[in-house]
Amino acid sequence: SASLEDVKTAVLGLLVILQTKLYTLPASHATRVYEMLVSHIQLHYKHSYTLPIASSIRLQAFDFLLLLRADSLHRLGLPNKDGVVRFSPYCVCDYMEPERGSEKKTSGPLSPPTGPPGPAPAGPAVRLGSVPYSLLFRVLLQCLKQESDWKVLKLVLGRLPESLRYKVLIFTSPCSVDQLCSALCSMLSGPKTLERLRGAPEGF
């Protein structure tokens, strides 16, 4: 439990870093931090981490990651405290083949985003970082199938509809809506759902 406290501190630090690096160059920093966060949550489900502190780590990670939004130009952003989304000039939600690297070039400044813009690109060529939603999407499927803490599952179920409104997140990387529907149906009809959940409301 003591070591998990250190892990929790590290994860919180990564969330803060991602919130900053999403809007700064090099964009590969945001890509790497995002991948680290998603990989860490995957390990929770792989090794069945069920301690309360592990659940709190997942809760905080999902609470942040499910706020990711994308505009029509595929640029990622996060809402501010007033709910207004600021889109990044440097990070996009497109999935890119590994051989192309985590970044790609664009020939010049991008068109203005639909929300308040981030800082304008400084040079004639900007390297865009790929932060594909499919990585998070796979972890969300694991959550629906394996999550043991009701608070975490409730958060994910509550945030998913709003995330799905931003269709560009889903359609720019390999996210299977069929698998999502299947996971939701299995969660509702499967007898093991109630068996594994802690803290579920009576009558769920």
Rank of each mutant, 00 (worst) to 15 (best):
M187R: 04
A54K: 01
Q19W: 04
L157H: 00
S186K: 15
V92N: 07
L194Q: 08
R69M: 02
R127H: 14
L78Q: 04
L43C: 15
E162H: 11
A30S: 07
K192H: 13
F137P: 02
A125R: 15
C93W: 04
L135N: 11
N80C: 10
L25K: 12
A2P: 05
S48C: 11
S176R: 09
R69E: 04
L76K: 02
P191N: 15
G13T: 00
Y90A: 06
L169R: 03
P52Q: 07
S173F: 02
L164H: 01
S88W: 01
L160M: 09
S134V: 08
A200G: 08
G108D: 10
K151Y: 09
A30R: 02
F204S: 04
S173G: 05
F204P: 11
T172P: 04
H44M: 01
L37A: 06
L140A: 06
L14F: 02
Y49E: 02
K145V: 11
H40F: 00
K104G: 14
S39I: 06
R138C: 09
A27H: 08
P113V: 14
S107T: 14
L140G: 01
C91G: 03
R138Q: 12
L153T: 02
G129A: 15
T31Y: 11
K145E: 15
S55P: 05
S111H: 10
P52Y: 02
S107L: 12
P26Q: 04
R138F: 07
T50I: 09
G13L: 00
M96F: 13
L135K: 11
S182N: 09
S1A: 11
L22E: 01
S189M: 13
G118M: 11
S186C: 08
G129F: 08
K167A: 05
S176H: 10
L140N: 01
G108H: 12
H29W: 05
Y49S: 03
L51W: 04
H44R: 00
V156R: 00
P113I: 15
L73G: 09
V7A: 04
A30P: 05
A200W: 06
H40E: 01
S176L: 05
L141A: 04
L78E: 02
C143P: 00
I41P: 00
R86Y: 07
F87L: 04
R196A: 06
E97H: 10
L51H: 07
L43E: 11
D94G: 07
E35R: 14
P109Q: 13
A200Q: 09
P109M: 13
I170L: 09
K151S: 15
R69F: 02
I17D: 01
V168F: 05
G190R: 10
I170R: 03
L184S: 00
L76A: 12
L194M: 09
L153A: 01
P79N: 05
P26T: 04
C93D: 03
E147N: 01
F204N: 03
Q142L: 10
G199N: 12
S163F: 07
P116N: 15
P132T: 05
D82N: 11
Q179H: 12
V38N: 06
V152Q: 01
H40V: 02
G101N: 13
L76P: 07
L164Y: 00
R198T: 11
V156L: 03
Q146V: 09
Q179V: 08
P52T: 06
H74A: 05
R69C: 05
V85L: 10
A200L: 14
L160V: 04
Y133R: 03
V33H: 00
T9H: 08
M96K: 10
A30Y: 03
P109C: 12
F204V: 10
L22V: 07
L169Q: 07
